[in-house]
Amino acid sequence: MGEIKYKRILLKLSGEALMGKQNFGIDGDVVKFIASEVKEAYEMGVQIGIVVGGGNIFRGVSESAKGMDRVSADYMGMLATVINSLALQNALENLGVPTRVQTAIEMRQVAEPFIRRRAIRHLEKGRVVIFGAGTGNPYFTTDTAATLRASEINADVVLKATKVDGVYDADPVKYKDAVKFDAITYLEVLNKGLKVMDSTAISMCMDNEIPIIVFDLFGKGNLKNILLGKKIGTLVEGKHD
């Protein structure tokens, strides 16, 4: 095995990824696959924090939330992320990976409250830490929660796992001539309005000089190869060659 490039990572998973080809909910086989990929990274000795979205269950800005108070809808979305976090924890622990779930909204019967020093201690002791309930505040996405937690735990990189193999200048599903970027700067992402993460998340990574790698979650071995420094997906950072 080659030298590991990133020693502590924040993996951002979308809630939609967990539902696989279903229209709603959690696909057990998909969660098992994600857990197996995380286990590979764990066995390399990498310290892993994870933020998972809740869009497979409820999104505060979705059609189902229309007519609902935005704050209430966002809190419902935060609770959905906790359901996903517990599902992922169960899958990881079935593979023998020690895991802790910490939530921004207290619910002590199912998870620890988020405490930065405790989270870092868990990472140092070789436990995967899953951060649930977003930032605990409405109007913030789980992308922003991911970059916030990455900043708090001093992560070397944010790994944004998606259904496509990187960042394109247009939606590659809709436009077959869409061009993929191998590397791009934070400012280019913001100026071009590219759908990498929301602007708050991008700005936070830029301010704290945390690179973002956008990659295909379902490419077997992608996570491991990124950690070994192989060029996979799209690198978003302050400058590129």
Rank of each mutant, 00 (worst) to 15 (best):
I9G: 04
L95Q: 15
V128C: 04
F131Y: 14
K12H: 03
I153F: 05
D182E: 15
K32E: 14
D143C: 07
L86R: 07
G15M: 02
N137D: 08
L227G: 05
N94K: 15
Y75E: 04
K160M: 04
N56T: 08
L92Q: 05
K239F: 12
E40S: 12
I50A: 08
L86C: 05
L159D: 01
A41F: 06
S62M: 08
T81R: 10
S36P: 00
E40Q: 13
Y175R: 13
Y75W: 07
G60N: 06
F181N: 04
K125E: 14
G193K: 05
D74P: 05
F58M: 11
N208L: 10
G28P: 08
D241N: 14
F114M: 09
L18D: 03
K163T: 11
E188Q: 15
L148Q: 08
L159G: 02
D169Y: 06
E237N: 06
G136V: 11
P113A: 12
Q22S: 15
G193A: 08
I153L: 14
R117A: 11
D241I: 14
R8M: 01
I120L: 10
G25N: 10
F181G: 03
G67Q: 03
L223T: 05
G238V: 07
S62C: 07
I26P: 05
F140P: 04
Y75F: 15
L86V: 11
Y6K: 03
R149Q: 10
I120T: 03
G238L: 14
Q22G: 15
D177F: 09
L79T: 07
F218M: 12
L227Y: 04
V71N: 10
T234H: 00
F33E: 13
D171M: 10
Y175G: 00
K239E: 14
N208S: 10
S85N: 02
L123G: 05
V157L: 15
G15D: 01
G20E: 08
E43P: 00
T142Q: 10
G55I: 08
K21M: 08
I48D: 01
V236K: 02
E152M: 14
L95N: 07
G134I: 12
Q47P: 01
Y75T: 09
K231G: 00
E63M: 11
R116D: 07
T162E: 02
